[in-house]
């Protein structure tokens, strides 16, 4: 049930090179959050009063595709909609408009997720494991419920997965509080992979971990990805982590993708002024005494998603902004080197 008329491209109407083996396709995905009206407001509204309703558009018209075996990094600052987009890709949240296809099938039916083909690793391993369930039961629950493994075989499967994520199989009978953050994240990864997904969405999987533990989890991720041929969407605010694991990267700003392309190219030759500013903002490891750190921060603040600026959302902070940027929103258009950039001046 794939969409044969559209080649796997990203951007509004933009066409990337054809991708026959794309696992995940998102087309014009939008998420709007309408504030929940109180009973009083609803009555007032029904009686004809003007009730203020400020919807927040967290994700606006995002199209992207992920190929078999590829890792797409999704980068942006807080409030850029990367987590919301991740939830829509993973079938946790239904888009307000547009559609998501995983292996040709929509991951959600109505309000409920309907596929096991895509699984999620969450940010905070202290919150993502049921504190009152033994980790063996946590890992086995999904596969048993979906008949991926017989109940009798579940303990063996759990032991196998614990070993593969670098934990002692004897830990299956322990509770989450008996583990450190890094160990919990290993359990969370095992839980996701035990569902035998074709694709994994990792939402800031190392953001809440210490540096040395973060390195261990990244290494584990790289190993598993190679061994299992995993396809991934890797969401993070940390540019260096994303660079390390991603083949392609999409940069988000205020609900839209402003630039995407091969990771190596984005980091060496960013084209969108926001991408450039973001890369310049990251503190570099300064190793030479005379190499005085110079910050070239992006001026100004992130605008409120309640009232995004007209035209290009980045124009109030952009050094290159001109009249057209204030009036007209730039479309994500392909450039000669395969990059997709949404900027009038890049």
């Amino acid at each position: 049930m794939s969409a044969p008329d559209r080649q796997g491209g990203e951007g509004s109407g933009a066409v990337d090179r054809p991708i026959p083996d794309r696992i995940l396709v998102a087309e014009g995905v939008t998420k709007r959050f309408d504030p929940r009206l109180s009973l009083g407001d609803r009555i007032a509204g029904a009686l004809g009063a003007a009730v203020e309703r400020r919807a927040v558009q967290a994700v606006s018209d995002v199209s992207l595709a992920v190929r078999q075996g590829e890792t797409l990094g999704l980068v942006g600052e807080s409030g850029c909609g990367k987590s919301t987009l991740g939830k829509m890709l993973a079938g946790i949240m239904a888009p307000s408009a547009g559609r998501v296809l995983v292996d040709g099938v929509a991951p959600m039916q109505g309000r409920h997720k309907a596929t096991t083909r895509i699984q999620t690793v969450f940010q905070d391993p202290f919150a993502s494991l049921n504190p009152r369930m033994r980790i063996g039961a946590t890992i086995a629950e999904g596969p048993v419920a979906h008949g991926l493994v017989a109940r009798a075989q579940a303990p063996a499967m759990v032991a196998d997965w614990l070993a593969r994520v670098g934990l002692d199989p004897a830990f299956a009978s322990r509770f989450p509080h008996q583990f450190s953050g890094g160990q919990r994240q290993r359990v969370a990864i095992a839980r996701a992979l035990a569902m035998q997904p074709v694709m994994l969405v990792c939402d800031e999987p190392v953001a809440s971990l210490d540096v040395s533990i973060q390195a261990q989890i990244l290494n584990l991720f790289l190993d598993l990805r190679r061994d299992l041929g995993l396809t991934c969407v890797f969401i993070s605010h940390d540019l260096s982590v994303v660079r390390h694991v991603s083949d392609r990267v999409a940069i988000m700003y205020l609900g839209r993708i402003v630039e995407s392309g091969a990771a190596a190219r984005i980091y060496t030759a960013p084209r969108h002024p926001y991408t450039q500013g973001l890369l310049d903002s990251v503190p570099k490891l300064r190793l030479e005494a005379d190499d005085l750190a110079t910050f070239k921060p992006i001026a100004g603040e992130l605008p409120s998603p309640l009232s995004p600026p007209p035209g290009c959302a980045f124009h109030p902070r952009c050094p290159k902004a001109t009249e057209i940027c204030r009036a007209e929103r730039p479309l994500l258009t392909p450039r000669e080197d395969g990059a997709l950039v949404a900027c009038h001046h890049a």
Binding site: A90, H112, K113, T115, T116, F122, Q123, A127, S128, E141
Partner: peptide, 14 residues
């Protein structure tokens, strides 16, 4: 909390 979201995202029946 995330663990409930994780359970629904597996997905597990309500």
């Amino acid at each position: 909390k995330d663990y409930v979201e994780a359970a629904s995202a597996t997905p597990l029946p309500g």
